[in-house]
Simulated assay, not measured.
Amino acid sequence: MKTNKSTFSLKEIYHKMEYFCAYQERCYKEVEEKLYSFSLSISEKEQVLTYLIENNFINEARFAKSFARGKHNYKNWGKNRITQELKFRDISSRIITEALSEIPTETYFDNFNSLAEKHWHSIKEQKGPKKNKKFVDFLLRKGYESNLIFEKLKELDN
């Protein structure tokens, strides 16, 4: 049996949103979108959001830092992709800069080099423009800086 989300009391919605935020780090935009699934008035939505922020269930800086570390360490995303995704979630530029500083420079370059070399050797094309394009496109999609990519391409293409 499917329950109608509009039948929840405000107290139940508070508890559901606390769990939603405690389960995984969330940004303001994600929580706001989740609240749209409940039939709440604008003032009730604001009341819930204020409560979540005041009780530290929502913290944009903490979310951005966790997001940046996680996406870089587990998905091997570069700084451009992380920045783009955080901007999509309406995170401020100052917080994005702070979050990117959470990634140690040495780790960033180590991850980039191992990912680039692994991908270079996995491309089945013979050396040439087609292989180079696949290599560059892959790393650009991952969000790495073009100057890093082209330096690595020069190094591997020799």
Rank of each mutant, 00 (worst) to 15 (best):
S66D: 13
I82C: 04
G70F: 14
A64L: 02
V48K: 06
I53F: 06
E46G: 14
I58L: 02
E60A: 13
L86T: 07
E102H: 07
E106P: 03
K87N: 12
A61P: 02
S39K: 15
R89T: 06
P104G: 03
R26E: 01
Y14P: 03
S9R: 06
F57C: 05
R81K: 15
K16T: 08
Y28D: 10
G78D: 03
A61N: 12
K16V: 08
N80V: 10
R62C: 10
I103S: 00
S101P: 03
Y36A: 14
C27T: 04
T50G: 12
H15E: 14
A68Y: 02
I95N: 04
S92Q: 11
I95R: 04
I96V: 07
N56F: 08
Y36V: 15
S92N: 10
K87H: 12
K11R: 12
S41D: 10
L40W: 01
F20S: 04
A22M: 12
S43L: 12
N76A: 07
F20R: 04
S93V: 12
F20G: 04
E18Q: 11
Y36D: 14
C27W: 01
R94M: 09
L49D: 00
T97K: 14
S37G: 13
E85L: 13
C27A: 05
N76Q: 09
E30H: 09
V48D: 04
W77P: 02
I103G: 00
I103F: 02
F38A: 01
L100Q: 08
L40M: 05
E18D: 09
S37C: 11
I91R: 00
Y28W: 13
I58K: 01
A99R: 03
Q84F: 14
N80Q: 14
I103K: 01
K29T: 15
R26L: 02
C21K: 01
Q24A: 11
